[in-house]
Write a protein that binds this DNA or RNA. Sequence first.
DNA 1: GCCAACGTTGGC
DNA 2: GCCAACGTTGGC
Length: 154
Amino acid sequence: MRYWLMKSEPDEVSFDDVLAAPDKTVAWFGVRNYQARNFMRDQMQPGDGVLFYHSSCAVPGVAGIARVVGTPYADASQFDPGSHYHDPKATPENPRWISVDVQAVAQGRYLPLTALRGEPALEDMVLLQKGSRLSVSPVTPGQWKRILAMAGLD
DNA sequence: GCCAACGTTGGC
DNA sequence: GCCAACGTTGGC
């Protein structure tokens, strides 16, 4: 059981969108960074906890709690020439990018990035490191507990 | 829209 | 394998 923070642009997929989806589950696709992909491919397991983070928006921050359901699979958008996420070097025989299904679990208080930065217990979060822009990053159990408490979900 | 920081590409 | 140029991310 591990914990992750996953960034989504709410204009694309917001936490409310996930809550409104069938089974409260959406496919997380479009990761095109090797380090993020490797986390998903090598370490993610069904049941892992996910902090659903809104990025590139007016108030970036943690919008809700989710979980990984099922195991990773090939991201279909890499094979679609019409997709923004198309990768000409990927083939179904040799996929390069993967998706995972994510299910909304709980929505607490919205936690703006500024609130996370103001929390000494979170200063080592990958998200908060200078220059960090990984769309999928690990969260420690201590950080997870702290953030759930801040959101009123403990 | 700016820009710092990082990742990727491609010539050599 | 180096590294300059370019593209992208993402907060502000």
